[in-house]
Simulated assay, not measured.
Amino acid sequence: MKYLKKNWRKLGFFLPFFLLIIFFLFVPFFQMFAKSFSTGEGHPGLDWYIEIFSKTSYLVAIKNSVWIAVCATLLGTVIDFFLALALTHSSKQKKRWYLSLLNLTSTFAGLPLTLAFITLLGTAGVFVLIGKNAGISWLANYNLYSLKGMFLIFVYFQIPMGTLLLLPAFQEIRKEWKEAALLMNCSAFRFWRKIGLPIMMPSIMGTVNMLFANALIAYTTPYLLVNNGVPLLPIKITDMFVGDVRQRPELGSALSIVMLLIMLLVLACTNLVKKFFQKGRD
Rank of each mutant, 00 (worst) to 15 (best):
A61N: 13
I50C: 07
K178G: 01
A180W: 15
P231I: 00
K95D: 01
K2L: 10
D282A: 13
C269L: 09
F277P: 08
V128S: 00
S256A: 12
A218E: 12
L182K: 11
S57T: 15
R248K: 14
T114W: 14
A116T: 11
K63P: 13
K35M: 09
F24Y: 15
A61V: 10
F127C: 03
M259R: 10
Q278H: 12
G252A: 02
P44G: 05
K236L: 08
K63W: 14
F170R: 05
I257E: 06
F30T: 07
E172H: 14
F81H: 01
L4C: 08
P249D: 01
N227I: 03
S146T: 15
K35S: 06
F277R: 00
K2C: 05
T221R: 06
K10P: 11
L216V: 08
L99P: 08
Q278S: 10
V226Y: 08
I257G: 06
I195V: 04
F29T: 06
S38N: 09
A180P: 12
G252V: 05
I195Q: 09
L104K: 06
K275Y: 09
W67M: 13
Y142L: 04
T163H: 00
K35V: 09
F170H: 07
A61D: 12
A218G: 01
P202K: 05
L59V: 15
A109T: 07
A180R: 10
L216H: 06
N209I: 02
M200S: 01
G243N: 02
S137E: 15
D239E: 10
N227Q: 09
F127T: 04
P16S: 07
L101V: 05
L225H: 01
N64G: 11
L121T: 00
M259Y: 05
I118C: 03
A61G: 11
L255Y: 01
F18L: 13
V126Y: 15
L46V: 10
L25H: 12
I62V: 13
Q93P: 07
T114A: 02
F191A: 04
V78W: 06
L183S: 14
S90F: 11
T123L: 03
K95W: 01
P202V: 06
R193D: 09
Y58C: 06
F212R: 04
F191S: 03
W192R: 04
Q93F: 13
P234I: 00
F127R: 00
F276N: 08
W67A: 13
V155N: 09
L216Q: 05
H89G: 03
M263P: 03
